[in-house]
Amino acid sequence: MTNLSRIILSGQTIDELEEYGMLETNYLTASQVKKTLSELNQITEQTLRDNFKPEVMNLKEVYCNPFDDSFFDYLLEYFNKVKDFYFDTAQQNKAVITYIIN
């Protein structure tokens, strides 16, 4: 499977923005957005369901709340929103910038 963590931390940074309190500003080029969308589109709801392990997430203290099977629908909703965003962005041939604010 592809490492899609580049959606948040691409490893391509814009260091000049740190002075504005943005700790790490990352970007994906328009062609990288299209590649990322292609990879996102390969992930089906069933693939997500098969890999959804709330007990492991709880052990690793992912986020601050305990997970159970009912949380899957919430995650699926936001996964689909990310896919929609990447679809729209790819259609417009635009890049993506992500950042973390301190």
Rank of each mutant, 00 (worst) to 15 (best):
K83D: 02
Q46S: 09
N41I: 00
S31L: 05
Y20W: 03
A30S: 14
N51A: 15
S38N: 14
T36K: 01
S38A: 05
G11E: 08
I14E: 14
Y78C: 04
M1Q: 00
R6D: 09
F72E: 12
N41D: 10
Q32K: 11
T89W: 03
V33S: 00
G11P: 01
L9E: 06
L28M: 15
D69I: 04
N58P: 01
Y20T: 03
F87W: 02
N65S: 11
L4C: 03
Y99D: 07
T2F: 01
N26V: 00
I97S: 15
T29L: 14
T25A: 11
S5V: 09
V82L: 03
N65Q: 04
T44W: 01
L59H: 14
I101F: 04
C64E: 07
F71T: 08
K35Q: 12
Q91I: 06
V96H: 07
Y86L: 07
Y20L: 13
D68R: 10
T44L: 02
P54N: 12
L9D: 15
A90M: 05
S70H: 08
E16H: 07
Y86S: 03
Q46E: 06
F85L: 11
E45M: 02
I101P: 04
Y86E: 03
E16G: 00
Y74R: 14
T36A: 07
L76M: 14
M1A: 06
V96R: 06
K53M: 09
T13W: 03
I8N: 04
K81W: 04
N51F: 02
I100R: 11
N102V: 04
L4E: 08
S38W: 01
E77V: 09
N58H: 10
L75I: 14
E55A: 13
T44H: 07
T47N: 10
T36S: 07
D15N: 09
V82T: 14
N26T: 00
L59M: 13
K35S: 14
A30H: 07
D88M: 04
V82H: 01
F85D: 03
I43T: 02
N102F: 10
S70N: 11
D68G: 10
A30K: 12
Y78F: 13
N93S: 13
K83W: 00
D50E: 09
Q92S: 08
D73Q: 13
P54H: 01
S31P: 00
I8L: 08
F52S: 04
T25S: 08
Q42K: 04
N26P: 01
Q92A: 09
F85M: 12
F52N: 13
F85S: 08
S38Q: 12
C64H: 14
C64A: 10
T2H: 08
R6S: 13
E55T: 15
Q92W: 01
C64D: 11
T25Y: 01
L28F: 00
S31Y: 06
M1S: 12
L37C: 05
I97H: 06
F87A: 09
E45Q: 11
I43F: 06
L4M: 08
D69W: 02
F85Q: 06
D88R: 15
L17Q: 04
Y86K: 00
